[in-house]
Amino acid sequence: MRLERLHTAANVATAIAWGAIVWALYMVFHFVPMERTMGNVQRIFYFHVPSAMVSFLAFFICFLASLAYLFTRRRGLDIAAQASAEIGVVFCSVVLITGPIWAKPIWGIWWTWDARLTTTLVLWLIYVAYLMLRAYLPEGSRKANLAAVVGILGFLDVPVVYMSIRWWRTQHPAPVIMGGKGSGLAPPMSQTLRVCMIAMLCLFIALLLRRIVVELLQDEVDHLYREADVAPPERG
């Protein structure tokens, strides 16, 4: 059965994610040497960057699932879009929280309205709105369609937002803060970053599968209630 197979997959992914996270923590706090100028706070980099990567991947999956949903109308794709957006928002929040913590001691400021930061914030706002829409749409035949439209529109908007902010900021030059990405990263650092990325990816996959399983179980429970001709209890 599909549900059981997914459940097993979620368990396996969780186990792998555990292992990968332990490995990543070892790399970050023990293996990698202290960065000379930034000190200990630089270690947040190993959580910040992989989270950003994973959140972007999550929103991309939400976009693909939404698009595929509109063409196939399969319930599974609607669930995948929702689960992916939820997890994406969590990782994106991590990015937005760890960013300023890292920035304050290094740049001396919490926040700057440069293209990358601003786009991340707008991205977060778009997907929080997406989840809010899902919460406020009544359960019915329109819900999945409408959510999918926003899932697609929101993602397509991201490059447009990024380009316009970058363009605007180059008109009014702001201090260039981030150097070329990953430039001059020492080998132990890039190794650690790679491990952290794998760990985050594993965590993402485990969470995604788990979330999908929960939603499918919910469907199953409702189905059983209906078969038995009993009204399912109100869910908040």
Binding site: D78, E139, S141, R142, A144, Q218, H223
Partner: peptide, 9 residues
């Protein structure tokens, strides 16, 4: 047949 979300109408 018509199903939407978890409802079979």
């Amino acid at each position: 047949a018509k199903r939407f979300g978890r409802i079979t109408a």
